[in-house]
Structures are given as C-alpha cells and as structure tokens.
C-alpha cells in the first residue's frame, strides 16, 4: 500500500513525513515523529487526551488523518513552553496540583491555553464547558478549574 507524503508545520517547525492513509494525526505524531505528549485515551474523540491545535483550532488528533495535516500548522503540548520558561498555565497546574496521574494534562493544557487566547476572562461555567471534552479521572476537575481561572486572572493582570 503506497504511503502519502505530507509536509506540515508542528510547533513552528517544518516537518515532513510519510504515512499510511489510515493513520490518524495522533498515530503520526506519536509513532512517526516521537511527539508522545499527545496521548491516546480512547481513539474516538471522547476523552481529549490527544488534543492539539490545527491552524489555531482545537482538534482531537485521533479524529484527523495524518494526510489531512498537509499545509496545516499544528500545535502540541511540546510547543507550549517557550525556551526555558513554562507557560503560566503549566506553572499553575503544578502549583495547584491540577494533575494527579498527568495523562490528561497535555490535552487539558492545550485546550485551556486555546480558551484563554480566545477568552481571557472566562467564567467557571465557561471553563467547565470548554473543557468538557477533556476527561480527567483523578482530580474531580476542582483543582484544574481553579488553576485555569487563576492563570487567567494573573495573565489579565500582567497584560
């Protein structure tokens, strides 16, 4: 079966790969490009652990073919921290213990960062609904929601 050649941008770097047409973007990220930050929790778009951005919009990488990445700009958890600095959300997640096992954390951080870029002052309800597609089984979401809200407040003050 012939493979498809794809040129794309991931975390601002140009990347080329070959993939089977059946491979999802998540398969490509994890198994071909060694970007294992995005996790496969379900493979059916129900858990959000593989959340990435595609041209600035949130997508479950398991619900997109690798071949569809052609010409797109993809953002993953590996691209959130800049140089030596963690993103404020990353700092707050550690400070608030907004993670226990950490498997959902990459997807939640990508989703939460995207929310704050669109809405710097979300209500608790808006945060909860925005993140409803990111399942966490450890925390009961309490500390996650608090970490996102507090990060938003701090970023508003800083700007």
């Amino acid at each position: 079966m012939s493979k498809i050649h794809v040129t794309t941008t991931i975390n601002d770097d140009e990347v080329e790969f070959l993939c089977d047409p059946r491979e999802s973007l998540l398969d490509v990220l994890r198994d071909r490009l060694s970007l294992t930050g995005a996790k496969e929790g379900c493979g059916t778009g129900d858990c959000g652990a593989c959340t990435v951005t595609v041209d600035g919009r949130l997508v479950c990488a398991c619900l997109m073919l690798g071949a569809e990445a052609e010409g797109k700009s993809i953002g993953t958890v590996e691209g959130i921290a800049t140089d030596e600095e963690l993103h404020p959300l990353q700092q707050k997640f550690i400070e608030y213990a907004a993670l226990q096992c950490g498997i959902c954390t990459p997807g939640i951080l990508v989703a939460a960062k995207n929310l704050l870029e669109r809405n710097p002052d979300p209500t608790e309800t808006e945060v909860r609904y925005w993140l409803a597609g990111n399942l966490c089984r450890c925390t009961g979401y309490d500390k996650i929601i608090r970490a996102v809200m507090d990060t938003a407040a701090e970023m508003r003050e800083a700007s």
């Binding site: 959000g48 919009r57 949130l58 479950c60 619900l63 989703a111 597609g133």
Partner: peptide, 9 residues
C-alpha cells in the same frame, strides 16, 4: 455536538 475539539471539525 461533542466537545470543543469536535466542534472544530
């Protein structure tokens, strides 16, 4: 329909 992520597609 679905999550924020699904809404993107």
């Amino acid at each position: 329909i679905g999550s924020t992520q699904v809404q993107g597609r």
